[in-house]
Design a protein around this nucleic acid. Structure first.
Lengths: 131, 131
DNA sequence: CGGCATCCGGATTGATACTG
DNA sequence: CAGTATCAATCCGGATGCCG
């Protein structure tokens, strides 16, 4: 069963991330993964080219960014627009579905950023207790 | 009905996940990580013991759950309550801070679960185009 | 029950080099 | 510019065994 009390109890959902075999778990990982979250977050502001994205997401390697974008594109969250010009130009942008997911993701990201002082204080307390 | 209230562009925040060295990136990873997300999600319903959690989060090993809980406890998102009885009993629950983060995380999880049909359709389309 | 320490194989990652 | 290919290094993550 689901994890929420928000949903009506008798609602029978087809997908449940808590189930090991559910495909939603994989998609959630694409979105929340180390680079997936930052990539989606960066694209929320608007369409970006490959290297723009690379600069925005501080620390991604070409390979990881490429791989991340492929996964997100396959899941229908990101749209890839390639122009066969020379030099080539490729723009990435969120799909409508991607925007919805990104909205939720950014709410989470902002929540964490806004509370970092508390988190850092908790860490300091934890570490001093332990040591 | 904005999904998120967007921040004003010029807002100068102390913490930015997009920066490689920002500690918020680490915390975000604890929360969104493979097991972190499911652990936090499971605890949203209420306090749980170690093995209850283990059963709930289908697929975690004992080691990973333990490790995940430590990281979340250190970040001040989870509270650990140990009773020195025999046999020992340890309960885990979200802190107020943890609940806030969990709320956002669950919104994201539900969003993904609810749209899985679209995701799966996108995947099928992507794969047939590629092949 | 609720853990921690150790080992170990395979998946993940990141430079680097190369291509269209 | 926008990637792919390759290879070495790293990092999980699970299994096992032990302890309070």
């Amino acid at each position: 069963m689901g994890i929420t009390q928000e949903r009506t109890a008798e609602q029978d959902l087809p997908y449940d991330v808590f189930a090991k075999a559910c495909p939603s778990r994989g998609t959630l990982e694409h979105v929340t993964g180390r680079w997936g979250a930052l990539t989606v977050g960066a694209l929320y502001e608007g369409s970006l080219r490959f290297n723009e994205l690379r600069r925005r997401v501080d620390g991604v390697s070409e390979k990881m960014l490429s791989q991340t974008l492929h996964a997100l594109e396959r899941d229908g969250l990101v749209h890839r627009e390639a122009q066969p010009t020379s030099p080539p130009r490729v723009d990435y942008e969120l799909t409508p579905l991607g925007r919805e997911v990104a909205g939720r993701l950014l709410a989470l990201i902002h929540c964490v950023e806004d509370r970092m002082d508390e988190v850092l204080a908790a860490r300091a307390a934890y570490d001093s207790r332990g040591a």
